[in-house]
Design a protein around this nucleic acid. Structure first.
Lengths: 248, 248
DNA sequence: TTCCGGCATTGATATGGGTCAAAGCGTCCG
DNA sequence: CGGACGCTTTGACCCATATCAATGCCGGAA
């Protein structure tokens, strides 16, 4: 068992194009309802559509760097993005993985607080931050929606603090797998097959562990028939056992 | 050297009173300019004032519990509040300390994501969440301000993830002290004398350490003349050395 | 097809910080 | 003034996870 990556079509070899959608703009956007755009009326959506630009990032390329001036905000429509902070000596903490439907730059601050890199090929709707800000100013319900999303992010961040500060390696890995399953489920891929397009190093840097500990923990879970490790992913055999480990 | 706690006057022995301010409501509020209320015009402030209720919480009492229905939102005006999440087996992660000027319930969600307890005697402005929500709906600039605060919170949470996941005990303690110093400074108490009204256990639960490690680390910093440990606080002798340890 | 380079796994060993236990040390109360 | 309680510090020991070091595995290039 392996997991196919979503096909990403670029505009005639460009990573960047003005109207790269299926011709219907936001209308056939698969993530719209899960995303901040879900708050908008058709007419408003048209207007937003005109502000947006579809952009493709190949795997391993950077969308923006920590501390850089925040010129854009993004809505991820395909692929996975890692968001991270680094220390001067190279230690890295991944603070989140953005999936389709996730918004980058929610805080609307003038500098990016984290760096963002494509894990897989990624497609986004890009907005100029200035234009987006202007647009938002006239749409209180959109701001409300953004705030809801920010509140949700904050809540997730607090969960992650609990995980990083107080959970064991086993608990961390179990919680990670269940969490990813739930998130895939929410965007329409309910399954016990969990693609893991990110590297072991990414998982380690997300969970505050080393690559070896992540690997060993997965092997242990596999030995006890809780999961099966497959190329580029994991199949969950006993979510009950994982729940028990994650000790919610 | 010790640190006096701010005097908290209650309304004739009540922990709760409608007009406990100095008679001038928000006008003589010391934290207004640092707080979300800073976005409001005098007239709006009057209106908000009428929605608010001053409330005092003695040290060690709970403002609200994790998962409870969020009936209120709060603005801390005096004292320190710990915000935390717990695991079923009692492990606890403090996700933040709220100081005067901080807003509790920023996310405006219908349930509290964390529990909040007074570390010192605490005074707050309390708002019914429903009333506050209604009020906010007509004030986009207030919502904007709330969103700015939420973005800031999110950024702090991400810093804390880096700290919890990737920093050593020494670095954690150093960063904690510098951080507190900066926050005290921002609310008008610039000094190398850092009051630590929270217990060692609180600090440990904030930094993802044990009480013993926190104690040992402080002793080590004291041995090498980086700090002096005093009852209920710490005096910073070498912020340079701490900066170096915190490895920003 | 083979070689090569980048990940992942596995094993052996080391260590930072946890755990357990015993004093200190204030502060409050009688 | 003395005893006790709660918190902090200190010490001895241990263990979960890090570190160091092979080895394995796969996919792409020649």
């Amino acid at each position: 068992m392996t997991f196919a990556e979503p096909a990403v079509e670029t505009c005639a070899g460009e990573h960047d194009c003005k109207h790269g959608r299926g011709g219907n703009g936001c209308d056939d956007c698969k993530v719209r309802l899960f995303s901040v755009c879900g708050a908008l009326e058709p007419a408003e959506l048209d207007e937003l559509d005109r502000l947006s630009q579809v952009k493709n990032f190949p795997a391993k390329t950077m969308l923006f760097d920590q501390g850089a001036l925040a010129g854009s905000v993004f809505n991820v429509t395909e692929g996975i993005v890692r968001l991270y902070k680094s220390l001067p000596d190279g230690r890295r903490q991944i603070v989140g993985f953005a999936l389709p439907g996730d918004f980058l730059g929610l805080a609307l601050m003038d500098r990016y607080g984290v760096a963002a890199e494509a894990v897989t090929p990624v497609r986004v709707c890009r907005f100029s931050r200035a234009a987006f800000l202007t647009y938002v100013d006239g749409k209180p319900h959109l701001l409300r929606r953004l705030h809801e999303f920010a509140g949700h992010e904050l809540s997730l961040a607090q969960d992650q603090m609990l995980l990083l500060g107080r959970r064991t390696a086993d608990e961390k890995v179990a919680a990670f797998l269940l969490n990813l399953q739930a998130r895939y489920g929410r965007i329409g891929a309910k399954s016990v097959n969990i693609p893991l397009p990110m590297s072991r190093q990414d998982i380690a840097d997300y969970l505050g562990l080393t690559i070896e500990t992540v690997s060993r923990t997965l092997t242990k879970l596999a030995r006890e028939k809780t999961v099966v490790v497959v190329p580029d992913g994991v199949r969950l055999l006993s979510t009950d056992r994982l729940d028990q480990l994650a000790a919610a």
